[in-house]
């Protein structure tokens, strides 16, 4: 893999390392932060970004990225049905269910 060309988004993206758009990031990460938390996080993120920016000076010309500690290859599974889940067993942990469904507030599509 050479470079990532994620589709640019339509709404405002953070524009540079020194202006981290915490509101945008917390929206993407689905974290409701109040104003106070947002400004605290902004300053923490700023120091973290300063910390990680230190690596940008390392020369990586011609170096292949390493995704796993050891370059390996996917191991495949035989196509067999091995799991026979019991919804009741798994739904003991669920905050809201009915007739084996998980329930969430109504979604408008």
């Amino acid at each position: 893999m050479t470079s990532n060309t994620n589709t640019p988004s339509d709404d405002s993206t953070p524009t540079s390392g020194d202006g981290i758009d915490v509101a945008h990031l917390s929206a993407l990460a689905r974290l409701a932060l109040n104003a106070e938390a947002t400004s605290e996080v902004a300053s923490d993120l700023q120091s973290i970004v300063t910390l990680i920016d230190a690596m940008r000076t390392v020369d990586t010309e011609g170096v292949e990225p390493l995704s796993h500690p050891f370059d390996g290859t996917a191991r495949l599974r035989a196509d067999e049905v091995t799991e026979h889940p019991d919804p009741e067993h798994f739904q003991r942990n669920a905050p809201a269910t009915s007739d084996q469904y998980y329930l969430v507030p109504r979604v408008v599509e």
């Binding site: 990460a29 390392v58 995704s67």
Partner: peptide, 29 residues
């Protein structure tokens, strides 16, 4: 939360190459 937001930032559009990909290359080094 700090780590989630840091990760969200470095994987975001426009930052992936500069952070995530760069970090994977240095990981190899």
């Amino acid at each position: 939360k700090r780590r989630i937001l840091t990760g969200t930032y470095t994987l975001s559009v426009g930052y992936f190459d500069a952070y995530y990909l760069k970090a994977q290359k240095i990981r190899r080094l």
